[in-house]
Simulated scan of single mutants.
Amino acid sequence: MNSGRPYRMRARAEAAEATRRRVFNAAADLLRQRLRADIRLEDVAAGAGVTVQTVLRVAGSKTELFQVAFEHLLAEIAEQLYGAEPGDVDAAVRTWFDHYEQFGDVVVRTLADETDPAVSPIVEVGRAKHRQRVEHLLGPLLTTRQADERARVLDALVCASDVYTWKLLRRDFGRSRTEAEATMRLMIESIVRSRQ
């Protein structure tokens, strides 16, 4: 008699999951373009094609919404940035530039907003992830065995490959991507050579 009920329940569950994905994808898309503080729940709702009430029902709160959306972006960024083989400076610089060309401006704006208690943890995660990526990609090139010296060299490599370096080269100095990549490679290779 109720043969249609399991089908309807499954269809409802699938529709709810599709709505959930649209809401979090809309929030992640907005985070790619704007500061978190500049994004309203109405913007997310419009992007997902739902009401603000649906956004809150799905996410629970604005804080939770952006936390999940940020985690989604981190996973996407990690996949993008770990494409280079460890020790390959050219590939590392290319993947950083792929990332910075797509997200660099919003990352720089987010860094300017890091005094916001909701943004500060996001910035800290980003810094830690960047350092991990630098160590993963460029660590094999470091020959120094002393921990304090290795940490200093790693600090220099983190600075050389940072989003602010990209901003200086691309936005402030107006260098082409090719020129900017060559400059970042020069800095990284100079740091590595000076410690061999």
Rank of each mutant, 00 (worst) to 15 (best):
residue 44 V to R: 02
residue 45 A to F: 01
residue 124 E to C: 08
residue 186 L to F: 12
residue 173 F to Q: 00
residue 93 V to D: 11
residue 172 D to F: 07
residue 52 V to F: 06
residue 166 W to R: 10
residue 99 H to F: 15
residue 74 L to N: 14
residue 150 R to P: 02
residue 58 V to G: 13
residue 65 L to K: 11
residue 93 V to P: 06
residue 130 H to S: 09
residue 193 R to C: 05
residue 90 D to C: 09
residue 15 A to P: 01
residue 168 L to H: 08
residue 7 Y to C: 00
residue 115 T to S: 06
residue 23 V to R: 07
residue 164 Y to Q: 12
residue 48 A to Y: 08
residue 15 A to R: 04
residue 191 I to Q: 05
residue 142 L to V: 04
residue 191 I to N: 09
residue 13 A to Q: 09
residue 6 P to E: 04
residue 16 A to H: 09
residue 74 L to Q: 14
residue 164 Y to C: 10
residue 116 D to E: 06
residue 65 L to Y: 09
residue 161 S to A: 14
residue 139 G to L: 03
residue 33 Q to M: 07
residue 98 D to W: 01
residue 121 P to Q: 11
residue 127 R to Q: 15
residue 41 L to V: 14
residue 18 A to Y: 01
residue 5 R to Q: 11
residue 5 R to E: 14
residue 123 V to H: 12
residue 116 D to C: 00
residue 8 R to W: 07
residue 122 I to P: 04
residue 187 M to H: 13
residue 184 M to V: 04
residue 115 T to Y: 08
residue 70 F to T: 09
residue 192 V to Y: 06
residue 99 H to S: 08
residue 73 L to P: 14
residue 134 V to D: 10
residue 122 I to Q: 10
residue 24 F to A: 15
residue 132 Q to D: 13
residue 1 M to D: 02
residue 118 A to V: 11
residue 135 E to K: 08
residue 172 D to K: 06
residue 5 R to I: 02
residue 160 A to R: 10
residue 43 D to M: 07
residue 104 G to Q: 15
residue 91 A to E: 15
residue 127 R to H: 11
residue 101 E to K: 01
residue 30 L to M: 10
residue 96 W to G: 02
residue 91 A to S: 11
residue 156 A to Q: 12
residue 62 K to T: 01
residue 146 Q to W: 11
residue 73 L to K: 15
residue 133 R to Y: 08
residue 81 L to A: 13
residue 109 R to V: 03
residue 170 R to W: 02
residue 94 R to D: 12
residue 150 R to E: 13
residue 52 V to C: 04
residue 140 P to V: 06
residue 108 V to E: 13
residue 154 L to Q: 05
residue 103 F to R: 14
residue 131 R to A: 15
residue 186 L to C: 11
residue 98 D to C: 01
residue 145 R to D: 04
residue 55 V to L: 07
residue 112 A to C: 02
residue 55 V to P: 02
residue 109 R to F: 02
residue 64 E to H: 10
residue 25 N to T: 15
residue 47 G to A: 07
residue 97 F to K: 13
residue 18 A to K: 06
residue 103 F to D: 11
residue 177 R to N: 05
residue 186 L to V: 00
residue 141 L to C: 10
residue 113 D to N: 14
residue 2 N to H: 00
residue 46 A to N: 13
residue 165 T to R: 12
residue 143 T to N: 03
residue 152 R to D: 03
residue 96 W to P: 00
residue 62 K to V: 04
residue 2 N to M: 00
residue 123 V to A: 14
residue 151 A to R: 11
residue 81 L to V: 09
residue 59 A to R: 03
residue 108 V to P: 06
residue 182 A to H: 00
residue 92 A to K: 08
residue 178 T to A: 13
residue 194 S to W: 06
residue 118 A to C: 00
residue 151 A to T: 13
residue 120 S to R: 10
residue 80 Q to D: 14
residue 75 A to W: 05
residue 67 Q to Y: 04
residue 185 R to H: 15
residue 70 F to S: 12
residue 43 D to T: 07
residue 87 G to A: 05
